[in-house]
Design a protein around this nucleic acid. Structure first.
Length: 108
DNA sequence: TCATTGGCTATCA
DNA sequence: CTGATAGCCAATG
């Protein structure tokens, strides 16, 4: 089947390793729509999310996706949950910001 | 099918 | 930081 926009977004997001983060813009670029950053956010918003009760196939670490400027952005489940998860992953959040230089996920 | 609206954004003034 | 603008997707009528 032809993977829709949403499917691609989720697929890429699932590839994000723990302790690393990505931005909406990067994902948009990987998909092929560099300007669809907003749509990417929407896709993640509608996605199942990161729940332990969910099967790994459906689990999407949307909390590892933040704004391109290093801000946290939003979260459907509550921004606090996102911060907690990221901290548990071993990353330090500086005043609601994350060091993209250190934790920015790069694909080869 | 089209028009409108809203949203986990990006970029610029 | 606020507004405005741009570009994209999904839901709604």
């Amino acid at each position: 089947m032809t993977p829709s926009f949403k499917e691609k977004v989720l697929r890429i997001t699932k590839k994000i390793p723990a302790g690393r983060i990505t931005t909406y813009k990067i994902i948009a670029r990987l998909i092929g729509r560099p300007k669809a950053c907003r749509a990417v956010g929407n896709a993640l918003n509608k996605s199942p999310g990161f729940a332990a009760s969910l099967p790994a196939s459906r689990r999407v670490p949307c909390h590892r996706v933040i704004n391109s400027n290093g801000q946290l952005g939003g979260y459907n489940d509550g921004l606090s949950a996102k911060i907690t998860l990221l901290k548990k992953e071993g990353m330090k959040i500086n005043k609601g910001k994350i060091d993209l230089k250190k934790f920015g996920w790069k694909i080869r």
